[in-house]
Design a binder for these strands. Structure first.
Lengths: 246, 246
DNA sequence: CGATATTTGTACGTATGTATT
DNA sequence: TAATACATACGTACAAATATC
């Protein structure tokens, strides 16, 4: 367990303005992620943590509540607070994933995340092929025109790529899928950073062609084809991430 | 906006023990779900809510925090708190879904939920066919034996059915999929209750046969077949829910 | 642009209730 | 029953962001 806690104004010159409960949250979270606080063991009591961190119980309670809401802790009324195993963690929570990225403990979920991403994108393409409105299709077409434009920079192309997949989800007309996308977007960003990879320049032409094929499938109302092309597209992208050290 | 709030000890004889912040949460949530508080309008200030509900700001803040975490409110530091539209709502949150069930405003997400359920179950079956261990397969087999046993009651059969799908997710060996299942389980229960349907007795034989085919596909490592059978299975179950008044 | 008022955010201390051991 | 530990709620003070004059 961490002995001390970085004060909110550790460097008087700068302005970190770290909130106390966030500092406590992070200190405890890191200890859990790294195994310093082992699964099943009891967290010190509220009052013990108050004295250890030198803060009020309000702060401790807020930190514990957040830790509990991401599944790191199991709070039992009257009995104590216990450390959960990784099976209990909310592996879709961006805050937790970010911390796992920072502590180098994110490896064991990367393959799981790729599964989810694939499932998600394939479903969006399939549903879009069934339900896209003329407006949806027009928006996708406009995007593809810009992607094919030789004047667009590499950076712009990456952004357009993301936007294309966003429009696809919108064209699926499923609100829950859109919510899941929001969660996954942050998570995948963390993952990409953890592996410090960028889109290969050479892939640009291939990628645009893939997107064109997906759009064609949607326009022709062929869900099976949309599904197959998206699957191939995603699996191509996965190759740049998979089979690296975990 | 609700004028008063059910006090925690409304009936001295019984022991409702309703928490104040939950009561406030619910009162405001209902007003938002039913449109009494329209999208984009401002929620009264903390202090105004304190006097209106007759509670401390601690209670109001806790309620607002929960409302914000399920996407019903948008809290802007220094500017005020505003009502979010349904596009912002976290439609996978069990607490919110439960409330939507109670207020009769859940209809517009049922079809979305069925999409998600189908996507989810099909993916689990496909992955299970790729990754199930001998232990996974033995557990599934044991479950099927009990399902075929004529001595199992109808109620038991429903429970075994749920357990089968749970084991399937476990056999997918994807932790995030398991977390999603937890969320969906509560949601689907609410949905079923909202439509007050139970499994048809006549479907029992068909259902067991379907499960057997899924297990066979997994044992034979045929993901495509597992995917197809599960799709048919889920779509069969959907027929008992779809095409009802929303 | 600047000063001020408003509104939300953070933190403290205290008191009391409730569940577990 | 008693002790322990978490839960809820109140009131207060000040900080920070925003809006308004």
């Amino acid at each position: 367990m961490t002995q001390t806690l970085t004060p909110p104004d550790a460097t008087p010159g700068t302005r970190p303005k770290r909130k106390l409960y966030e500092a406590v949250f992070e200190a405890i979270a890191v200890d859990i992620l790294q195994g310093t606080l082992p699964t099943g063991s009891a967290l010190p009591t509220d009052s013990a943590l108050c004295t250890r961190f030198g803060v009020s119980r309000t702060v401790i309670r807020e930190a514990i509540q957040h830790l509990s809401s991401v599944g790191l802790l199991d709070v039992r009324h009257g009995a104590g607070t216990y450390i959960n195993g990784s099976r209990q963690w909310d592996l879709l929570d961006p805050q937790l994933l970010t911390m796992m990225g920072r502590t180098g403990t994110i490896g064991f979920v990367i393959d799981d995340l790729l599964d989810i991403r694939r499932m998600f994108e394939v479903e969006a393409a399939t549903l879009a092929a069934k339900r896209a409105t003329p407006d949806d299709i027009r928006a996708l077409e406009a995007l593809l025109v810009r992607m094919r434009d030789p004047a667009t920079t590499e950076q712009e192309h990456v952004a357009l790529n993301l936007e294309f997949h966003g429009l696809l989800v919108q064209a699926s007309h499923n609100r829950i899928l859109q919510g899941l996308r929001e969660q996954l977007r942050g998570v995948l960003t963390v993952m990409m950073n953890a592996r410090h990879r960028q889109a290969d320049a050479e892939m640009r032409t291939v990628s645009t062609a893939m997107h064109q094929m997906i759009l064609d499938s949607i326009r022709e109302r062929r869900p099976d084809r949309a599904q197959a092309v998206m699957l191939a597209h995603i699996q191509g992208a996965e190759r740049s991430l998979q089979h690296e050290p975990r």
